[in-house]
Amino acid sequence: MARVLIQMPSRARRGEVIEVRATIAHPMETGFRPGADGRPVARNILQRFNCRYNGELVFSVELHPAISANPYLSFYTVATDSGTLELEWLGENGFRQLERRALQVT
């Protein structure tokens, strides 16, 4: 499992727009970089990020090799109901990581 840092409030008022910031440890190997033997290192990138709020997709990203290593993403969502935010990263070589964070809406 890759190390993940997620910064978001744990509670919010109903209707409030909250910021979610997420970083995941991943090399995002472009496939253009020469390795120690002079040949390009095989490509290995994250291709997709999804954020679901109580099951509903509220934000997604299609990532390409031009995204830096350890991808950082910042986005906003409206706090509608108490529940969970599911952050999902999908990548090459079968990479998948799912993180859940609870959000209490008052």
């Binding site: 727009v17 997604s60 990203v61 299609e62 390409h64 995204i67 830096s68 906003y76 969502t77």
Partner: peptide, 23 residues
């Protein structure tokens, strides 16, 4: 390669603002 990222948003986003880090 020409693509960097494509962000998918909607009314649930609340604010049309995104940030990342690129090469």
């Amino acid at each position: 390669q020409r693509d960097v990222a494509i962000f998918g948003l909607g009314p649930r986003a609340g604010r049309a603002q995104v940030a990342t880090r690129m090469r």
